[in-house]
Design a protein around this nucleic acid. Structure first.
Length: 299
RNA sequence: GGGGAGAUACCAAAGCGGUCAACUGGGGUAGACUGUAAAUCUAUUGGCGUAGCCUUCGUAGGUUCGAAUCCUGCUCUCCCCA
């Protein structure tokens, strides 16, 4: 049997955590989290990290190992995971990766092009350009620096344009010249199982989970992080809405309502991303036998 | 019992004689996505065989070439007085 990475993905709130732990115990494997917000130590309640019991039942990696002040990215995650995997495969032929951050999962499973890091000052420069002169100034710059990319990007999405511009300026080469669009082969097998539920069922779970988070003290957690609200890591559902409440711009009730709505929207975006991925085999979380059978088929 | 205000699409809310299948927001749905991505951005939202046709603006009538918009009855909601 070959070393196999079992990827258990699905929209937020679908029930990945419970199943991943069950799966891990059954196979004696360890779990890599692919959840870009569970990386940060300061956030716990709002990101629904596994409980202490769950964490002690199975060894987890990439949970609360960063600070919200740290810089991190899908590319660094790819590198870190690939570095860790040989060690995990040394102990067990199966490793489970579970989470909902699609770009991070893709970085590990399909590879992400190697693009130099950007000087924060350069990023800052373009952010300012956007704020002061609007998106048209970004478009004009991109048209000059990378006409190829200019014809392909969503010209209404400033983040896309800024990213391209900062790479052009940092490297002196067009951003598009770094994009190979090839899948990278990995020295292990990858089996991807997607979890999903009826939309109504999923949304009901999300709404309920938000209420549970509130009961557990999400508001206090957000309040502690309020002074750091400008950090990108805190531009996160469950926190930003509370920041609005602390600002006095919305009511507490409204904030909670928005957390639910934004979480639902996030779940939808996740599903959109995966909809085109033909390698995913989809299951309802209750179809455990079917999911466990995958493992049987591997070994 | 008397007086006043109002009933618009899933919700809220504009429109006050034609250019209205109806502004806008919410919610829903669909989509994009190579670097802090739980981010950022887009489309669509009465029905249909979508050029175009059909049925809508509480309800029943009426006025008019033409009504969500004007008039009348009825039903319901809200507010004030009793």
């Amino acid at each position: 049997m070959k070393n196999t990475l079992i990827v258990l993905l699905g929209p937020t709130g679908v029930g990945k955590t419970d199943l991943s732990i069950e799966l891990a115990r059954k196979t004696g494997s360890e779990i890599i989290s692919a959840d870009s917000r569970q990386f940060y130590g300061e956030m716990e309640i709002g990101t629904a990290v596994p409980s202490p019991e769950q964490l002690s039942a199975v060894k987890h990696y990439f949970i609360r190992f960063l600070s919200v002040h740290d810089y991190y990215s899908a590319s660094i995650y790819e590198r870190d995971v690939l570095k860790l995997l040989p060690e995990l495969f040394g102990r067990n032929k199966i490793v489970i990766m579970t989470g909902g951050s699609a770009m991070y999962i893709d970085a590990v499973c399909k590879g992400i092009d190697d693009i130099p890091d950007v000087d924060p000052a350069i990023r800052e420069k373009y952010n300012r350009m956007y704020l002061e002169n609007g998106i048209s100034s970004l478009r004009i710059a991109l048209k000059v620096l990378d006409p190829d990319h200019y014809s392909k990007v969503d010209l209404r999405n400033h983040k896309r344009i800024i990213r391209a511009l900062e790479i052009c300026e940092t490297t002196g080469r067009p951003y598009s010249s770094f994009l190979r669009k090839e899948k990278t082969a990995r020295p292990f097998d990858i089996v991807t199982a997607g979890l999903n539920r009826e939309r109504e069922e999923l949304y009901g779970r999300i709404n309920r989970r938000v209420d549970e988070m509130i009961d557990k003290g999400l508001e206090a957690e957000a309040e502690k992080l309020y002074p750091l609200r400008h950090l990108n890591a805190l531009n996160t559902v469950g926190y930003r809405e509370f920041f609005g409440f602390f600002d006095g711009s919305i009511s507490r009730e409204k904030a909670i309502e928005l957390i639910k709505r934004n979480t639902r929207r996030y779940a939808k975006r996740q599903l959109t991303w995966w909809a085109k991925d033909q390698s995913i085999r989809w299951f309802h979380p209750d179809e455990k036998e079917k999911i466990f059978k995958i493992i049987g088929d591997i070994s």
